[in-house]
Design a protein around this nucleic acid. Structure first.
Lengths: 248, 248
DNA sequence: ACCTGAACACCGTTCAAGT
DNA sequence: ACCTGAACACCGTTCAAGT
């Protein structure tokens, strides 16, 4: 045992000051950095994931991260790809491709939302990470199995991705705004109630249509909105399947 | 003329040091702050719009802005609403509501994209500004004139908004990434070319479908993608119009 | 009422120096 | 090769003090 590391539980001998507080248990690796960043993300949201904060959590300074990660943007992309690994992918069944595509979209939503506002990273990003590409491959495989032309499938994977990103960001943004320490649900209720009042008080002469449907506009539940948009998109994609091309 | 302000063109008399460099020409108002912020946005993107930067542009310190604006978030919302004032709104023609809704979407896209990544502010925001509400009112009016049920119209305005936001953000993110001083078009060409190579080099056994349609995936032009998604959404909305409810 | 300087508590990234 | 402390050039917001 040539290491000078102190035995756990033993006090520091006099005059033998430890370097900082506690040496990082694990040597710094890209994996450890990404894991730690995701822990911070889950606990406090994407905004809290700073180079300094992640470094602190690992018991070092921010400069140390740059040996394993090129910067903040790369760290964010690595986090997203790591999260994408949790998305369960279907085995294509050409008979049921539309329902399978919807289920996959729901699964992506589930995983994204379970990691706060991680979807923000996906917005405007061309996927290059292995797991993100697995997800794209699965979507394309379902559509192609269903007879969707290549050109259409290529654009549809984009449109669906935009929808999923926007929905996940939209859905988590209120939680992100919840002041630390407050109950997110109660805050949300409060927050949303204010908007109902605001819309109801709008001048009817300037906004005749809007003020005539305040109830419909403010009652829209998240899941209903998601299912509505998803159905629109999947039905739209299906409309491009030429009858002869459809297997089964 | 009781003011001690120096005559323009005159040098500062000895021993009469001016407060800073030059006094702000206009007194600070919310309007002037928002205008200045939009000028910075147009020139350098949303990220460059900081309280300190806007203050500097107005010849003051950041603390001075807080008398007219509650903080950075409010300033961003005010900027978005100001920009939304430029969106030209249609007079509903029930016969052509689908084409009018598409045209309005194209107009929103045009205005958003002409102000860099301003759409980022819209993402996950419940519209409350007068001009943003005008736009929502116009969309709802078109759909209602076309016979779309209230409940559907309420959700559709949300879905369409998500699509427009995601598209505008997606479309400007590359420009936002262009290093200062470089030609955006040349950078974009370079940047995108690298992705083509990357996709072409992907392992075909793990990504069989994807690697079989690299051309379709990387050729997708922005406008084509937008029109595809827009058509999907508008056709989807139209499918909810009950035949009896349609005027004409 | 409005504006200010200074301060507080943060950022991402670089770099020379250490091991 | 990896890690570090210190520095650089920034952030948003608050607050006591001025006019």
């Amino acid at each position: 045992m040539p290491t000078a590391r102190p035995e756990p539980g033993m006090p520091t001998p006099p005059g033998r000051r430890p370097r900082k507080a506690a040496a990082p248990r694990r040597p710094l690796t890209q994996e450890a950095i990404v894991e730690t960043a995701i822990r911070v993300l889950d606990a406090e949201g994407l905004e809290a994931v700073t180079m300094r904060r992640v470094a602190q959590e690992l018991g070092t300074g921010p400069a140390s991260l740059y040996a394993h990660v090129s910067g903040k943007d790369e760290l964010r992309e690595l986090m997203l790809d790591r999260v994408a690994a949790d998305i369960m992918l279907p085995v294509p069944d050409p008979e049921r491709w539309q329902e399978q595509l919807k289920d996959l979209a729901r699964e992506i939503r589930r995983v994204y939302v379970s990691h706060r506002d991680i979807a923000m990273v996906s917005m405007g990003l061309i996927p290059t990470g292995p797991h993100l590409l697995d997800v794209a491959e699965a979507q394309l495989a379902l559509m192609r199995a269903g007879g969707v032309p290549k050109k259409i499938a290529a654009m549809a994977v984009d449109t669906l991705g935009m929808f999923l990103d926007a929905d996940a960001v939209e859905g988590t943004i209120y939680y992100a705004k919840t002041p630390a320490g407050e109950d997110p649900h109660a805050f949300f209720e409060e927050y949303f109630g204010q908007f109902k009042e605001y819309f109801a008080a709008l001048p009817a002469d300037r906004y005749p249509v809007l003020t005539g449907m305040v109830k419909e506009l403010t009652d829209a539940d998240d899941d209903g909105r998601f299912e509505f948009g998803l159905d629109l998109i999947v039905r739209g994609i299906a409309s491009y399947v030429e009858d002869g091309e459809r297997p089964g």
